[in-house]
């Protein structure tokens, strides 16, 4: 029984982790049909923000929950203004430009902080016990944050004026712009918000994974397949993709070790796309957010 609870906890944490690292990417993809290849580097920047701020004496919670999303969100807006906005409607070029941005950010951070960081921060919150097994309290906290984040995005899209306008732009940009909505402004805000959510995720994961200029590469493979398998609905897609792929990854990792877990995740995603080329939400839950 205790083993069952402990394994289930790990499974849920794996799913939440996947959802957390993918949500920012999904927001940008769902709203703008832009796949941000610099997503991993936005996560990395969030992590660096936390490490630098904590070392400068800022409270770790403030650094993670406020500074990381703020800094990366501002960077996102700048990126949108300088690079992305010239490339709307040219999906392939957007991909390539964000890939260039990804290399640029890796290079920039390496130049400033060096190729490796000695300073790490340990995860706050202690250990919780499940019978004979123990689990990290911080992992439980991350699961909670993921849920809150999903609720917040849902509330923003469903209940606020900005969310209404954003959903309209998502469905039909020409019509929204004819009705007087400044779509360029919406795109700018969306990109900034997506970046902020990504920064938050990166900041929250920094105590668990540590930070390196190249750490983005370890996240993006998983984040990309989750979002693509999920389809274009932001929340339902990310949730469905995370549950399915995170579940498969967790089960295979438990049975055969972490090496095959990622391979199983990839194979599952490729077979899924053969059956549903537009992702899960391209077939099911079409009307969902």
């Amino acid at each position: 029984m205790d083993l069952f609870v402990a394994v289930t906890f790990q499974l849920v944490y794996g799913i939440a982790n996947l959802a957390l690292i993918s949500l920012g990417l999904a927001i940008i993809f769902g709203m703008m049909r832009v796949i941000n290849l610099a997503h991993g580097e936005f996560l990395m920047l969030g992590g660096y923000t936390v490490v630098v701020a904590t070392n400068a004496g800022v409270n770790i919670w403030v650094a993670m929950l406020i500074l990381a999303p703020l800094v990366v969100g501002v960077i996102g807006v700048i990126v949108e203004r300088v690079i992305i906005r010239w490339l709307y409607g040219r999906m392939v070029d957007t991909l390539l430009a964000t890939w260039g941005l990804s290399l640029l950010l890796i290079g920039l951070v390496t130049s400033i902080f060096g190729a490796s960081t000695a300073t790490t921060i340990s995860p706050p919150l202690g250990i919780i016990r499940i019978g004979d097994y123990s689990a990290s309290g911080y992992e439980l906290f991350l699961i909670g944050v993921t849920l809150v984040l999903f609720l917040a995005v849902f509330a923003t899209l469903k209940l606020t004026k900005l969310g209404l306008v954003a959903r309209g732009t998502m469905q039909n940009p020409e019509m929204s712009s004819a009705l007087g909505v400044s779509t360029t402004k919406i795109y700018m805000i969306t990109f900034g918000l997506g970046a902020a959510v990504t920064g938050l995720a990166g900041g929250l994961l920094a105590p668990v994974t540590g930070v390196l200029p190249t750490i983005g590469a370890t996240y993006i493979a998983k984040a990309f397949i989750t979002v693509i398998s999920g389809g274009s609905a932001i929340l339902a897609g990310t949730a469905a993709g995370s549950i399915l792929l995170g579940g498969i990854n967790g089960i295979f990792s438990f049975l055969t070790g972490p090496t095959l877990g990622e391979v199983a995740l990839l194979v599952a995603a490729i077979i899924l796309l053969r059956l549903m080329p537009r992702g899960i939400t391209g077939r099911f839950f079409r009307k969902s957010l």
Binding site: I35, L37, M91, V92, L95, A217, T218, I220, A221, F224, I225, I228, P258, T259, E262, V263, L266, A269, I270, I271, L273, R274, L275, P277
Partner: peptide, 30 residues
């Protein structure tokens, strides 16, 4: 899988990139 699934070109780019990165982490662990 990708052509007969009629996966669009941007997805294809991302999938092939993902395959590459998974090879990277897989072979590093061997």
């Amino acid at each position: 899988f990708v052509f007969f699934g009629r996966v669009s070109d941007v997805y294809l780019g991302v999938i092939t990139l993902t395959v590459t990165l998974i090879f990277f982490s897989l072979i590093r662990r061997t």
